[in-house]
Design a protein around this nucleic acid. Structure first.
Lengths: 113, 113
DNA sequence: ACCTACTACCTTTTTATGCAAGGTAGTGGC
DNA sequence: GCCACTACCTTGCATAAAAAGGTAGTAGGT
């Protein structure tokens, strides 16, 4: 199994992850208010690696679209944190994502048979 | 439901589709040899819209990575067609994609609960 | 009081790639 | 000989993920 193959494989995997990144982040935030670094480790646990350079611009985008809002909160140990939560619009958006996800799952299922 | 919201929603949907595009194309080709225009309509039926400007470069890339090969065949009505099929490497790659897909599905399931 | 370590935030630059639009060419019907 | 149709392919633009580097608040040790 040469290098090129592994590279392509890793790339394809990355592509798939990218596609659901936004959805995944919204899912995490939907459960409870949470700050960026925490989201990163939460997603890492779920085998969805995200790095800082990806998540900060993405959170800003979502906030600008008014899907998210945040509140600064102090930490017992370290600098203050931006806790994100969904707006009403965000919850609606998340619903849309869930539908899209279902539709994608069934599309793939159909293509297999 | 303003315009911006719809735009974001459509964008998120597009992102998800993108992520599985390569996988979907390989799935289609795996079933039988097929040519580009046919792939497009097959995917359209499965609610995965792809356009020419997307698929041709992608097929070339896959071919350069030796995951695909093709054979010219004449058509009864119209110009000749490039029929694509998977190489051995391509079949292996597809297996990898299927695993990745499963892992993504379970990641999302986990994030929900 | 200062240095180091740690956490958390954010920005800049590069690179990949999907898509819109436009272009070429073979076939067949009128 | 022209038009319509199918099929191939390329160019240029816009988006967005990721790598790398930067700022700043807190805490603990000496």
């Amino acid at each position: 199994m040469e290098d090129e193959f592994k590279k392509s494989m890793e790339n394809a995997a990355a592509q798939m992850r990218k596609g659901v990144l936004e959805f995944a982040i919204l899912l995490v935030i939907a459960k409870r208010k949470i700050y960026a670094s925490e989201i990163i480790s939460r997603l890492k646990n779920a085998k969805l690696t995200v790095v800082e350079g990806t998540i900060y611009p993405l959170l800003s985008r979502l906030k600008n679209s008014e899907l998210l809002e945040y509140k600064w909160e102090e930490s017992k140990s370290g600098p203050p944190r931006k806790y994100y939560s969904l707006t009403a619009k965000g919850r609606q958006f998340l619903k849309g994502c869930e539908e899209q996800w279902k539709s994608l799952e069934s599309a793939i299922t159909n293509l297999k048979k």
